[in-house]
Design a protein around this nucleic acid. Structure first.
Lengths: 338, 338
DNA sequence: CAAGGTGTTGCCACCTCTTGCCGGGCAGGT
DNA sequence: ACCTGCCCGGCAAGAGGTGGCAACACCTTG
């Protein structure tokens, strides 16, 4: 409509051949005019660009990718698209990708290793690299992926695969120290999915820190890292004599708070609750959740950055996992032990 | 690893040529064995499949798409990936796509027409069709997209483009009638983005219904359809004498409730609030939000279904917008006017 | 036994773009 | 005037599939 020329008659777009004919040059010259600036005379290039624009020409990325596999596509696989934990991660990852001329595909694994496998099967051939955000895959499956495409894992450590993680141990230490400072002695950890690497790290850090501080630690679970999982956790918690609990993640914590409230337990007066991740929503639930905050915004950007590095120089020299700091955000769900 | 043969040495995967050589047939036969069952002898096909599996062969979807553009990729463009409104939509859309052998790309437009345009620019060439979920684009821009690829718009009506919408008028009627039934007379509508087609529909339905019921209607806004937007709305509301408000969507409503609570306004005693969409989180905010629920789960599935229809028979005969019902979910944010 | 039918497979052109290589034209040095 | 070397544009070979057409084997039928 706002275009010059006779566009819109068909759904097939002009190719470099059309542009070449219109500009009176060879197709290869058109190709170079776009992908290899400098390699072609400035005037010629200008003329080609002009003609191309007039014809409404757009490079066909799938044909572009054929010769050497450069599709300019990256993928991020998240365990659960509806988990606010990933919001900032996806956003920042996307921004970083775009800034470097890549498009980021967001793939949802539905918290299922099988779905994740299938999704990867479909997506992997399309993309140049992949970020596995909190994957539910086995280490060997992840290594198999990494063998096909440059890969960065998030919140997990897999031998021979680049990774970006938060300082779970430090975060957990802060959480437990906070509770200890409030006079709590009997604390329960609400565990997340067995397949979660982060869950293992958090539980171990929990046990270690409580031990060091001379507290009584217990573990309940595993629970699904969802609101529904939190409801089950609430049930289980009532049979416990703990006065405080640290949950695997915020969703679980919020679900547990809701369940407990429904069961007549007053939070934080009767029970203090701490979550992990500081997700969207953790500040407007009731009461606002005290939580261990990860620098989510940097998380995604950082992962993509590492991926891009791998793409640029495919050195087999693997680097250490990048460790991002964690801090405690104190809100209304924790209080002094009466 | 778990594979037979000498896999893993390189990142380049076997092609039909490798399979053909190993199976002692021509490459085209391998191609047909996969993409045209029946067209090749059952035994030959079986042998080829066996060899292919042994070699770890996977069809390369981008090469596959070269001749006729069949990439088996669809895209859904959402206004804001972090808006829970889209969760169920994306999930159901994805499931429908996968069930039909397609992969769904999720594209985030960041509530910006410009970002949406750029994202489409990058994605459109890759996909066979696109669902525009609550697009911020102009009608003519959308028609331009529809000219390039089969398109379905959601929550909006654009001439000559297939669409799936909820019954905004009916939903708004239910909401206003609910408030009228509770004795409210002065009601305010909190408007969403100017570029939102749904906002226009809702506001018009609001005005019409309030008029019919003899209520005093006012409009405030526009506000961003986010929690932050709701905070501004809360400010603006305090200067109003309304006893009830209907917000453009749930996020705006929840943000407004938070802002009002902070300003010392008690909900629902002093002010009743109704949202739109019944998103994830609307039931665990404080108080739980009364809202107009759309059948989100069907929404995405339906849109993709229509898209697949267009793909299968590219008839120019356009159909009427599909209208999905809306109902009111009464929760704690509305009460009788004192 | 020849003619015709049917079912399978191979050959090759094609989809769009990239890239190595080559040659023509031109400028500058001798 | 001739050689050298650079710059630029063209040619053609892929990249990994698809699909039309033809060949060929084998079987049926007259």
């Amino acid at each position: 409509m706002g275009e010059t020329g006779e566009t819109g008659n068909s759904r097939t777009r002009p190719t470099i051949y059309d542009v070449a004919k219109a500009a009176g040059v060879a197709p290869s010259t058109v190709s170079r005019a776009f992908s290899r600036p400098g390699r072609v005379n400035a005037e010629t290039a200008e003329r080609i660009r002009h003609v191309a624009h007039e014809l409404g020409y757009r490079m066909n990325p799938i044909a572009r990718g054929l010769p050497d596999g450069r599709t300019a596509l990256l993928a991020i696989v998240v365990a659960d698209l509806t988990n606010p934990f990933f919001f900032e991660i996806i956003r920042s990852a996307e921004k970083t990708a775009i800034d470097s001329g890549y498009t980021l595909l967001v793939v949802d694994a539905h918290e299922s290793g099988e779905a994740e496998r299938q999704a990867l099967e479909r997506t992997l051939p399309l993309v140049e690299g992949v970020v596995l955000a909190t994957s539910r895959l086995s280490d060997s499956a992840i290594r198999a992926v990494a063998k096909q495409r440059p890969t960065v894992v998030m919140n997990r450590v897999v031998t021979d695969v680049a990774s970006v993680i938060t300082d779970n141990a430090e975060g957990m230490r802060r959480a437990v120290e906070h509770l200890a400072g409030l006079g709590h002695v009997r604390i329960t950890y609400l565990a997340g999915p067995e397949a979660s690497w982060a869950d293992g790290m958090r539980w171990r850090a929990f046990r270690r820190t409580t031990q060091e501080l001379g507290l009584k630690a217990r573990r309940l679970g595993p629970f699904a890292p969802t609101l529904a999982g939190g409801l089950s956790a609430a049930q289980a918690l009532t049979t416990h004599s703990a006065t405080a609990t640290v949950a695997y993640n915020d969703l679980l914590a919020i679900g547990a708070m809701r369940g407990l409230t429904r069961l007549g337990v007053e939070i934080p007066r009767e029970l203090s609750v701490i979550g992990f991740d500081n997700i969207f929503g953790s500040d407007f639930c009731t009461p606002p959740l005290t939580t261990v905050a990860a620098p989510l915004r940097h998380f995604g950007a950082f992962a993509v950055q590492r991926l891009l590095n791998q793409l640029r120089n495919p050195s087999p020299g693997l680097s250490l996992p990048a460790l991002l700091p964690a801090k405690l955000v104190e809100r209304g769900s924790t209080a002094r032990h009466a």
